[in-house]
Design a protein around this nucleic acid. Structure first.
Ligand SMILES: [Mn+2]
Ligand SMILES: [Mn+2]
Ligand SMILES: [Mn+2]
Ligand SMILES: [Mn+2]
Lengths: 222, 222
DNA sequence: ATATAAATTTAGGCAAGCCTAAAAAATACA
DNA sequence: TGTATTTTTTAGGCTTGCCTAAATTTATAT
């Protein structure tokens, strides 16, 4: 059984490996788990001995199959608990991360199964991130960046790529959330901000910075 | 903030102090938290420095007001999570202890408040144990031992004083649970076992050993 | 009152996780 | 291609929480 701390490292490595490059650096892990690079080196040696990562000194690190399985089990718990907090305890999607960060370490396979059932087998968490199944299978993030959509298209919001409280509150304040159906009316050619109309509301402007962090699914076109 | 381990010690000391003698011994704590007496001595020094306990070497230990408050906050979380597990996730009352033992350490006052609300402000946990309020006020255990009841009386079960899986399963197998209304038909003078009829079922025999661990409330007599 | 036994504390040590400072390797760049 | 910079690892140390063995205190029983 990995320790609380090992789990945090494994999850961090998994997250960092989701970008283009699956090989993860010591410094990026340190930033991610809020420690110093020296502590990361210690931990990498340990995780390597436990065969959870492949590790060559100075060459970065990659999860093994076993490490990936561990990571996905933690991600599954994290996201299911987030659903619980939002759906059952009425938390806002900007408030749940810290608590889920703790709850993800509760050890009981059976508990996860029952929680999943209680929540109705949700497919995504409150941020639109897919929830891995109990075998560690996870679907691809569903959507493309809003910033890549052309004027005239209609899209439905499916997720965010940035989870900061500031950004999520910003979306709340503009009443933008998962499932919003919106039409891109115009893209300002100066700053690439978008004029967007959300189904039956007055149009709003979304800066490109924001649009780069919003995932949407285009209306199936013909 | 107390650590995970400190919380377990504080809660153990509180539990042990609930008997007749509020002063708790090193060995009893060791047994309770599954460590050795030497480790307990270490921890007592530390808790004493933090003013959570009053501690005189060789003289046993007592919680301070601050320690008691800490203990009751953990107990509150433990019992609320047990209610959640039984009421919402359909666990049996014999299955929840280990998981609640972990969940009780999740840090978030707000979470506890919301959980309490979600559960409908329960007054007792699945074992009939009272749930402290957010200010650390806790009501007395509600009931007297079934073994102290005279033949002829009618009582309602309100709790158990033993939480082992074996005992709780034994009660399940006899369909004895919280809220059962039962009439003591006869007490066998040889072994003090009780013939008990549960409202509308055939009579069963409860050994004195079992009756000593069952809490009941006598029907208000005249 | 002693002697023995039991309970408790102290001494010394170990593993996990973290840290800072110094050394070493990799990379950038002139 | 060699030097400067950045990244990473190693060395040495600290705290927490645990352990065993030894010392000390308290309780029990002649
Ligand atoms: Mn975490
Ligand atoms: Mn999420
Ligand atoms: Mn616990
Ligand atoms: Mn309970």
């Amino acid at each position: 059984m990995p320790t609380h701390s090992e789990e945090n490292y494994i999850k961090a490595i998994w997250k960092l490996s989701q970008g283009e490059n699956p090989v993860v650096t010591t410094n990026s892990i340190a930033a991610s788990v809020n420690t110093k690079a020296a502590s990361v080196s210690d931990m990498l040696r340990k995780l390597s001995e436990k065969k959870l990562i492949r590790y060559e000194k100075y060459q970065g690190v990659e999860l093994t199959a076993s490490g990936r399985k561990t990571a996905l089990s933690i991600v599954r718990k994290h996201r299911l608990w987030e659903v619980f907090l939002v759906e059952k305890l009425n938390y806002g999607w900007d408030e749940v991360h810290e608590i889920a960060e703790q709850l993800e370490h509760i050890v009981s396979d059976n508990l996860v199964d029952r929680l999943d059932l209680f929540l109705g087998h949700p497919k995504v968490d409150p941020h639109g991130d897919p929830i891995p199944d109990k075998n560690g299978r996870i679907s691809d993030p569903n959507g493309v960046l809003l910033s890549s959509i052309a004027a005239g298209q209609t899209v439905t919001m499916t997720g965010v790529t940035e989870h900061s409280t500031a950004f999520l509150r910003y979306l709340d304040n503009h009443s933008i959330g998962l499932g919003c159906k919106m039409q891109i009316e115009e893209i300002n050619s100066f700053d690439f901000s978008m004029n967007v109309r959300i189904k039956g509301r007055k149009a709003i402007t979304i800066t490109q910075a924001a649009a780069k962090n919003i995932l949407v699914k285009p209306e199936r076109s013909r």
